[in-house]
Computed example of a mutant assay.
Amino acid sequence: MARADLTKNSSDVSTMFDGVAKRYDRTNAILSAGAASLWRIATVRAIAPRPREAVLDLAAGTGTSSAAIAKSGAFVTALDFSAGMIAVGRERHPDIEFVQADATTLPFDDETFDAVTISFGLRNITDPHAALAEMYRVLKPGGRLVICEFTTPPVPVIRATYRWYLRSVMPTVVRVASSNSEAYDYLAESIEAWPDQQTLSRWLRGAGFSRVAHRNLTLGVVALHRGRKPVNNARTSRGRRAAASPLDATGV
């Protein structure tokens, strides 16, 4: 697996997730000290899914978040680019519709979904700006976007402690809990390389979203980002991708 310089190859990342699929949820629960379930609850509340709404869950992995969203009565489509993750997800959640595809070229018509969400997956996409443009395209006017992602803790001492955890503690835990410790070396590096909350908010505005806001969780280790597709100025063609923010994935 290539190092996490945010110019990753999508096939490499997909293969990496294939290799950790069976123990992925358990490993995440251990690494987050149980906080992963709390982040999932906060994400579902932010989405606020309603019965019979169409919700797209990107980077859905094994469908744990998709199943939580579906409890509301919404129709959930779980999309991931890892065949291994989808295979495990279909076995665990046979009532959820799984689709294998890349988030930068979504196989859906314009204005299909009432809400789009992605948890801990945007930083693994080769072109996050293209992915945001696609999310905008497939949302209905007035549709909701919710992103849950690792980010930069705003308090210096928390930020330093978190980096120490990623570099020193996490590798030790992963060697015991995961079937592929090298994959988590990449994931730790991708977290450190990912831009901060303000930068991601600018990306959302650059993609056309309005009412952009974020809320820190767990001392800023994770942030929930939200946005809306405007009702009266919706641009839904694939050409929207070209209008995405010109900032590169490093936020420079």
Score class of each variant (00 low, 15 high):
P49I: 00
G89Y: 01
D57V: 12
S179F: 04
D25Y: 04
S65D: 14
D185M: 13
V222A: 02
R211P: 00
I118P: 09
G206K: 15
K8W: 07
V88S: 03
S72N: 05
R52T: 07
M16F: 03
R159E: 14
H129F: 08
K8N: 15
W164F: 13
R163K: 05
D57Q: 10
N216H: 07
R3G: 01
N124L: 12
A160G: 05
R163L: 10
R205E: 14
L106N: 10
L217K: 11
A234Y: 09
F98Y: 01
S181A: 12
A42T: 05
S10R: 09
F17G: 00
G34S: 03
H129I: 15
F98Q: 08
T236I: 11
H225R: 00
G121M: 11
L38E: 09
A243L: 09
V20M: 09
A59Q: 01
F75P: 11
G84T: 02
L56C: 03
A67K: 00
T218N: 10
A70E: 08
A160D: 10
V155H: 12
S11H: 11
D12V: 03
S65P: 01
R144V: 01
S237I: 11
V76P: 00
D102H: 08
F17Y: 07
A130H: 03
G84H: 09
D185N: 12
G208M: 12
L145F: 02
D196R: 05
T7M: 15
